[in-house]
Simulated assay, not measured.
Amino acid sequence: MVDENANDYTGLPLFHINAQIYSSLGMMIAGGILTLRSLFSASMFWEDITRYKCTHFNLLGSLANILYSLPPSEFEKDNPAKYVIIGGMPVEIWKKFEERFGVEVLEGYSMTEDPLPCLNPPGKYKKIGSFGVPVFPDLGHDAKIVDDSGKEVPFGTVGELLRKNPAQMIGYYKAPEKTAEVMKDGWLFSGDFARMDNEGYLYFVDRKKFIVRRSGENIASWEIEAVLKSHPKVADVAVIPVPDPIRGEEIKAFVMPKYGEELKEEELVEFMAGKVAYFKVPRYIELVDHLPYTPTGRVKKWELKEKEKERKDHGWDRDKMIPDWRTRYKAR
């Protein structure tokens, strides 16, 4: 798949492990070409791919959303790219992305602390929604899902993802206590919730710190974000837990409408009520013109979460504004 004829395109920053290892080092080893853009540009993306004859490219899920939301471009048609290597491809646009742009999605997972990836294999072995299996199991790359006590859980059960392999870090620089928190008996604790099916395929659920713990229910923010992003007027979303004196935590959604679209909070409540269980419908909704992004295109949800800790009023409140919302919208 990757040889001296490969030409990898990336606009991700070189200080990030993705561009450092999978693009730069990968092309050095393969003897192929690396096409670098100093800063990701959605408007120039397909023109670059076509002009430089790139055979594949690297993305993060939020950037895939941006590309898919743009109007069709003359350069996206018959472009030379064959596949995209990505982390966090939104399931709701996965097949549509492949069909529209003519590329195969290769979903993966890794960490700076443990760069040897898990990868969803191409072709008939691929499972949509999964980030695949640990690569190079013959070198000792292994993964398991555990509960809060560290006990391995049955297939299909959500728990924390642990991995072990020869490429993982020795430890955090001059931080032995922090290292001890995440590395135990050779296993690296990822801080991510995931599940494993009976064929060993792994599925991302959420970051542990962004799971909403509401009245004893563990609610994945990614699940809510995926549904909200499928609304035709929504460009991007960030869902976080906010403190609640009765339920422990409640759900808040920051929603960025598509340019030129008029969107009301009530529309989103009605939209969600027909698609998820009632307790997963966000109580608080804040419509925003923009969201804070990292240089790699991820929303800085931790920044939003920290700001909400200081607020007593979390904004537009579904229960105050639409007290009868469950009966009105037939929430199940």
Rank of each mutant, 00 (worst) to 15 (best):
M256L: 13
D289M: 06
N58W: 07
Y52E: 07
V212G: 11
V158Y: 03
L14C: 08
L202R: 01
R213V: 05
H314D: 06
Y52K: 14
S38D: 05
K307M: 00
L67G: 03
D48E: 06
I219K: 10
V288R: 07
E152G: 04
I21L: 12
K144R: 14
P90V: 15
G186T: 12
L67R: 15
D244S: 08
N79W: 02
I285V: 06
K124V: 06
P241T: 08
R318M: 01
E177D: 11
D313Q: 13
E223Y: 12
G159I: 03
P166A: 11
R332M: 06
S41R: 14
I224C: 10
P13T: 03
G216H: 14
W316V: 14
G87F: 00
H141D: 00
L139N: 13
P292E: 05
K208S: 12
H141F: 10
V255F: 11
V212F: 00
L162N: 08
G248M: 06
E177S: 07
S73I: 02
E225W: 07
W325N: 03
G123N: 11
D319L: 10
E223L: 08
D3I: 03
E262K: 11
P243V: 01
F40N: 05
G61I: 02
L34H: 14
K330H: 09
K124C: 02
S24R: 10
K280T: 05
L287N: 05
K264Q: 11
M196A: 05
V135D: 00
S69C: 07
K127C: 06
N120F: 01
V255A: 04
T35L: 02
I240P: 15
T327R: 09
A273Y: 15
E267Y: 01
R247E: 12
L25V: 11
E107D: 04
M183C: 04
W187L: 03
G26E: 02
S221N: 04
V103Y: 00
P80S: 09
R163Q: 10
I17M: 07
L14M: 10
D244M: 04
H141K: 04
R328H: 03
S43W: 06
H141A: 05
M28C: 05
E160Y: 07
K301E: 02
P122I: 04
G61L: 03
M256P: 00
L59F: 00
A273M: 07
Y68E: 01
K174C: 06
K82N: 13
K96H: 08
K252C: 13
M183D: 00
L59H: 03
S23A: 15
W316Q: 12
E303R: 15
N120G: 00
V227K: 15
E286F: 01
